[in-house]
Structures are given as C-alpha cells and as structure tokens.
C-alpha cells in the first residue's frame, strides 16, 4: 500500500552573499556573479516540510500540524530577517546557497522532529518561484 505524506509551507526572508575568502575577487566573481555583491542581497524563501508515517486511527492524522508549525517556526527564527553569513553560525564556513541552506534546515528539522518519533520525508526550499532545492533521505 502506498503511503500518505503531509506537507506544510513556511516563509522566511533572509539576505546572503556568495563569497569564499580564500579565493581572489576575480575567481569569486567568475563563479558567483552578482551574488558576490559586498553587502549581501535577499530573498523571500518558501519552505515545504513533508512528513510521513502511519495515520493514527483515533485522530485520523499523521501528525498534529500545529505542533509541526510551532517547532519549524522556532527553527526558522535563526533564519528569518537575518543576514545568513553573519547572523547564522551554520554559514561561517560554508556558502549559504539554496542547497546548503536546505541541507542545514533538513538536519535541524529532522533532529527536532525525530526526537518525538515524527518522520521527516523531504523538504523543498524555494529561493524564488523558479528555483528550489530538495533534500530527502
């Protein structure tokens, strides 16, 4: 029997800059283009969090979305209205590309939710409507 999954959408706004200190300015510009602009630039990110698991026959639900919303929103506080390169410790060493942000978010959300037996199946992170990264097991 195929499984059922449930997804909830979240939004956060953040700025970032693509830059590697150990590279020359030329090399940075060549690789990252306009994403190197010195003071950063921003996006309205859209995050889809997808969970799976058995449906509780007593509640008819896989998870209580209110609980998921509370936990994910708490995690997003470190991302929302921040300059990721400076304000979020996860991007001290790595460039805050959509791929890297998605990986960091997957690990954080997974660690928080799996603690209570929720099964994180997948996340999808939109940087804008025409660009997204996905992480799943």
């Amino acid at each position: 029997m195929t499984r059922v999954s449930i997804s909830r959408k979240f939004e956060f706004s953040a700025s970032h800059r693509y830059w590697r200190e150990e590279w020359t300015a030329e090399k940075n510009n060549e690789v990252f283009g306009k994403c190197t602009s010195p003071y950063g630039h921003g996006h309205n990110y859209e995050l889809h969090v997808t969970l799976s698991g058995p449906i509780d026959p007593k509640t008819g639900m896989i998870v209580n979305l209110t609980e998921v919303k509370k936990r994910v929103s708490r995690i997003l506080e470190d991302f929302d209205h921040k300059y990721l390169n400076l304000d979020n410790p996860h991007f001290k060493e790595q460039v805050p590309t959509t791929e890297n942000i998605a990986l960091v978010l997957f690990r954080l959300i997974d660690a928080d939710l799996s603690h209570d037996g929720f099964e994180l199946l997948k996340i999808r992170l939109y940087e804008k409507s025409d660009l997204y990264a996905e992480v799943w097991r």
Binding site: T2, R3, S5, R8, K9, T50, S52
Partner: peptide, 14 residues
Amino acid sequence: TNNNYFEMGRSNAQ
C-alpha cells in the same frame, strides 16, 4: 489550503 497539502503515490521521493 494554500499552506498545506497531502500526497500519496508510487514515486520513491514523493
């Protein structure tokens, strides 16, 4: 709603 959805299917990564 516009904020939540449910999926079911045969694909590996839903």
